[in-house]
Amino acid sequence: MPFENPEREQIKQLLEANTTVAVVGLSDNPERTSHAVSQAMQQRGYRIIPVNPAAQGDILGERCYPDLASVPEPIGIVDVFRRSEFTPDIAREAVAAGAKVLWLQLGVYNEEAAEIARQGGLVVVMDRCIKVEDSILQPRIR
């Protein structure tokens, strides 16, 4: 059966229930999409946790971690800004970290990653921008 994203109402519920977002591939470069989207989500009240093995120090005022296993707090959503071929391993990390949602950003799609995450109990959203979905579904500042 081909993958289908959750209905909008379920996405709204996921966003309301999971306000801690680990962003895999978050860049410290303000001109990168991952930075702009994460900054906007942070301004809307989400707790952003940067995950990027190449980055050092803080991003958006938050400590950056090299991988999901290093994050010392519960993760609601794992938001992925990496190429599709890297997502199966990220899905495995998300399952091991106890995340609730695997969210692959716009342009990122991988059926294997979705199946790994679903088998691990996560809800999966693929090829959608979390910032756009939040703006559509949550028109107010938190």
Results as ranks from 00 to 15, higher is better:
A113V: 01
G57S: 05
G61N: 01
I11M: 12
R140H: 13
E111L: 15
D127G: 09
A69R: 11
Q43Y: 02
D67V: 01
A91V: 09
S84W: 06
F86K: 13
E62V: 11
R63N: 07
A96V: 06
E4C: 08
P6D: 00
L137M: 08
A17L: 11
N29S: 12
P6Q: 00
N52W: 03
A96W: 02
I90D: 03
P139G: 03
I11Y: 07
M1Q: 13
V21H: 04
I48D: 01
I90E: 07
E73Q: 14
G61V: 14
N52G: 08
A54Y: 01
P72K: 01
P66E: 01
R140T: 09
G45H: 04
P53Q: 04
Y46W: 10
D58H: 07
L68H: 02
A55R: 05
Y65L: 10
R47V: 13
R47D: 06
D79P: 02
K12Y: 11
V37H: 00
N110H: 10
I59T: 11
S27L: 10
R118F: 09
V108G: 12
D28M: 08
E85T: 09
A113P: 00
V37E: 00
A36R: 15
A114F: 04
D28Q: 14
V71Q: 01
I130Y: 02
V125A: 15
E16G: 06
A117E: 03
P66I: 10
M41L: 15
P66C: 10
L26E: 04
I136S: 09
A36F: 08
L15G: 02
E93Y: 10
Q105E: 13
K12M: 11
S34N: 11
G61C: 13
Q105H: 14
H35A: 06
I48H: 01
N5V: 04
E73W: 01
F81N: 07
S27V: 09
P72N: 03
S34Y: 03
A114P: 00
M1T: 05
C64V: 05
L60A: 03
